[in-house]
């Protein structure tokens, strides 16, 4: 059984591990640089990207993460994870934040606005449907989500989302630059792949549909065939104290 690392600094890492479990794959929480050595692929979950960046900085995770991405091991970022993987992010906090980079694109942090503008939609996902079967659409949950404004030549666009140009009329300052974007291009990119890097602006871990997860796992298998057959799954290191029972939240339809 393949081990998949899930960066567990903050955010929806439990949800990712639960989704992997539904596919019969064990997800391992990654909190320290040395733990990255035990896994062959990594999911960077949703959460607050500033918080996750701060925590990664405190524990000196960035060099290890960059190395992991550069080695071509499969990495998937959802929402905040997408921001982590992008080469360039706009709409950051004062002073900016560190990024892992590797994905040749520009991400607009918090593109869709505050929680009131969070939404759910059926996204057309032709690439995913052709590889994984199932319906032509995927239930995309966008929570204060980022969006990809432009991508480099090597990046394959897996899904986009139309932005109505008359969208949002709030008095927020961050909405201004968004409006001009919306006028010049009526679609924003919300899912991409570049080699072994996968990134989605929405949260597949919050839905019952595990196709993105199995798509990601297959990315891993192409490169690391030998690793997936290892019978020696290292026993869970139990240096930790009380770990509460991991019961997962329900999936709201």
């Amino acid at each position: 059984m393949a081990l998949v690392g899930v960066l567990a600094l903050q955010g929806s890492f439990n949800e990712h591990i639960a989704a992997l479990k539904r596919l019969g794959v064990k997800g391992v929480e990654i909190r320290k640089p040395e733990q990255l050595l035990t896994v062959n692929s990594l999911i960077i979950p949703g959460g607050e990207s500033t918080t996750m960046a701060k925590l990664a900085e405190y524990f000196n995770l960035f060099p290890a993460l960059r190395e992991f991405v550069q080695m071509g091991k499969p990495v998937w970022g959802t929402c905040a994870g997408l921001i982590f993987l992008a080469d360039k992010a706009i709409g950051q906090k004062i002073g900016g934040q560190q990024l892992v980079g590797g994905l040749d694109c520009t991400v607009h942090r918090n593109f869709f606005g505050s929680q009131i503008q969070s939404f759910e939609t059926e996204l057309a996902v032709p690439e995913l449907a052709s590889k994984e079967g199932g319906p032509e659409t995927f239930r995309g949950v966008f929570i204060r989500a980022p969006a990809i404004l432009d991508v480099g030549p090597e990046v394959q666009v897996l899904a986009d989302y139309p932005v109505p140009s008359d969208k949002v009329t709030s008095s927020d300052s961050s909405v201004e630059d968004k409006k001009e974007n919306a006028e010049e291009e009526n679609k924003v990119i919300v899912a991409v792949r570049q080699g072994n890097i996968l990134a989605t602006a929405f949260h597949p871990e919050l839905t019952a549909d595990t196709r993105w997860h199995s798509y990601f796992l297959k990315m891993g298998n192409v490169t690391g065939e030998e690793a997936s057959s290892s019978g020696i799954v290292p026993a869970q290191v139990s240096t930790s104290y009380k770990q509460p029972l991991q019961n997962e939240l329900p999936i709201f339809q």
């Binding site: 929806s12 890492f13 949703g46 918080t51 969070s118 204060r144 949260h203 939240l249």
Partner: peptide
């Protein structure tokens, strides 16, 4: 209807571990 319960809970889920 613009904001189903899943989206409301969704943000809280993003705050977990924080």
């Amino acid at each position: 209807k613009k904001s189903p319960f899943s989206v409301k809970v969704g943000l809280a889920q993003m705050l977990r571990g924080g």
